[in-house]
Design a protein around this nucleic acid. Structure first.
Lengths: 215, 215, 215, 215
DNA sequence: TATGAATGAGAATTCATTCAT
DNA sequence: CATGAATGAATTCTCATTCAT
């Protein structure tokens, strides 16, 4: 670990190390970990974290940005490979999308936390960057979707994707249970809520898309 | 009833006073208020709160329970008045549902907080009660829906309602912005995300139901 | 240590215990001690301090207030016993005043810190109270002085006392040395600054008053 | 002079650049700025600052030294132009001195900070240098004063100047208010303390000198 | 000499919860 | 039942200083 000037790549590397540490701890604990813990987990000192992220919230936004970014990166090619016709499209998308989401394990818990975390101590600037990126990605993906499937009018591709994402997020929240609650799901009286997220997501997204292509 | 023992009604009254205070403070501040503030707002002492709710999380669960309960109470009659045919059903439900949601202003922020709050310090028992109640209400409403509209097979009414709720929750989270972020929504680059919740919800729910009835 | 309601006197007692602890630590270390240390020294927990002083600065202001208050309390009777004639007055006051100051050991270090401490994190409200009290005490003392000695015109008593206090404070700062510097004062080259505060104060105040009564 | 070694002038130049930066930032913010900021403002790296000042306190002492040095540099000629007679001397000096002080804007805030700053982390060696210089300047100025005005006995010139400086410093502290407190000065109850520093200083110094020359 | 990345001690404050009266 | 004083764990962020290059 040199003490002198770092190239941009090295800096970016450190950033990623910190993000990875935060990410791991978050996964393990289900709560945004204290900065001190992130530092330790990354093999660095507390103060060092603040050389890379000026506030704790920025770490969170960066995490979210990463997760959403990689979802979109994989979504675009998927959209471009969709069949044209209505019913097939819905089915094909649902199939692919559920796999995509299953692979982006951390996106949803993170996104679900966003409101709660950011209500408390909002980092406006990074948040703008994040939302801008999201808006652009959504618009772009919407256009891909429209071109490929002929969905009309203009803008409905974006809308459909926003609703798809919303359904995903909401479903995840409704069906995700903290560990100590899982056991309860066996009980007869809770059957109605003991559903697996992925099949459920498949059904919902499928139906939602059917609705859009039927309309 | 003697002077010493408190009747159940009195107890329940106190409970409701506390809940109302918590509710109001939450609405005003957008954050779960400290227990001390709830006590003061209810005209009680801090310690007294703990005679009615053993932890702060229980207050939160009770709040959520109330909000969801009243949503369901109004949902049932609405379902019973739905038209039979497919396309009409979707439209009629969406119309009514959006109004219902608009009237249940606090449900969504509260529900959106649930994951974050409960991950931290979970009160298993009250949570079980809550989830059980929810499961029952959902099942009941699902059956009403199926009977009224002929939606089949059995269980799909419940599923549809769950997905409808999920879409609502997700959409709310995607489109709700903490005050300081609102200003940014004017910017051109954020247009795609500057949508009004209610019309958007109407479109989404309408399409989702169309999908279910078309399937 | 009871856990239930405390009378106002008991509360005031606790406040004084905390103040005394802060006072002692400050004297020992020459620096405003951390809140944690004050708490420990007072036999209380950290959080308890905040039940009595909402911020650390308020502790400081309270300390200062006490010190100045007790100075004025003793100043007033002294002024009332002053001889009428000019030259005598100056001498008599200087004699008495120096003794007074010598007895108010903590006032000066505290007052000397005020600017530095308060520039950083100002508690406006308690500061207003403090300054208001000071202004009143000064005015009252000024009037006593004028009545007793015939000093004119109106207001010059207050002015003289303000200047006296200023000279005291400035002199203390010029002549007070942190421990590790004391040794150096023996050196020949520092003779000019190796003066004892009290005699020096006597000379200065005496001359200042002479100037006022001569004018 | 080769490319490697830095000449003394170059070194001294760097030192002055750093001091000027610290000075400016201090004036702008009213607080001793962090070393990192001083470095940036001087166009240097943080580490570099430590090649010129071993601790932050040394920067502070150097600043103070400068300010006092330039005050004395202008005081000496002023003393040499003083009239001989008693009453006139006091008046003439007060006139001149107040202007001098008004022009040395930074001396007083800096000096007022000295006790607080130096109590914490004292740099003995530079402090000795500073105090020695001050003692010499004071002695020299005192002799000038005595020679010019005939003030006796020997040493009283030095004393008078020390007291004059003390009065100045104390008065400044008593009458200087951090920005957020300024507003309060309008209030009736604070009138007694809402005095302008310069006229007040003039009165005080005038009287003090009268006292010395009358004695 | 100069750099600037890394360090980590340090401090203030909040707040859920307990429990003696 | 009700009170409210006391607790102390928990957490963020700052900044002087060091030192490998």
């Amino acid at each position: 670990m040199g003490r002198n000037a770092m190239s941009d790549e090295e800096k970016e590397g450190r950033r990623r190390v910190l993000l990875a540490a935060a990410h791991r701890l978050y996964r393990e604990r289900g709560v945004l970990p204290p900065v001190a813990d992130i530092a330790t987990a990354a093999g660095l000192a507390k103060g060092t974290v603040y050389l890379y992220f000026r506030t704790k919230e920025k770490i969170f936004v960066a995490l979210l940005e990463d997760a959403l970014g990689s979802l979109f990166a994989r979504l675009l090619p998927a959209l471009d490979r969709l069949p044209r016709g209505g019913r097939d499209t819905a089915k094909a998308f649902a199939d692919h999308y559920v796999r995509l989401i299953a692979d982006s394990a951390d996106l949803l818990p993170l996104a679900a936390l966003a409101n709660a975390v950011l209500e408390q101590n909002l980092p406006v600037e990074p948040m703008r960057r994040f939302k801008t990126g999201l808006a652009r990605a959504l618009g772009q993906a919407g256009r891909h979707l429209e071109q490929r499937t002929g969905l009309a009018p203009g803008g409905s591709g974006e809308t459909l994707l926003l609703h798809t994402y919303s359904l995903t997020l909401g479903l995840w929240q409704a069906l995700s249970y903290p560990e100590p609650l899982r056991a309860l799901l066996q009980e007869e009286s809770l059957r109605g809520l003991a559903r697996d997220f992925e099949p459920e997501l498949h059904i919902g997204v499928h139906r939602l898309w059917l609705g859009y292509f039927a309309a």
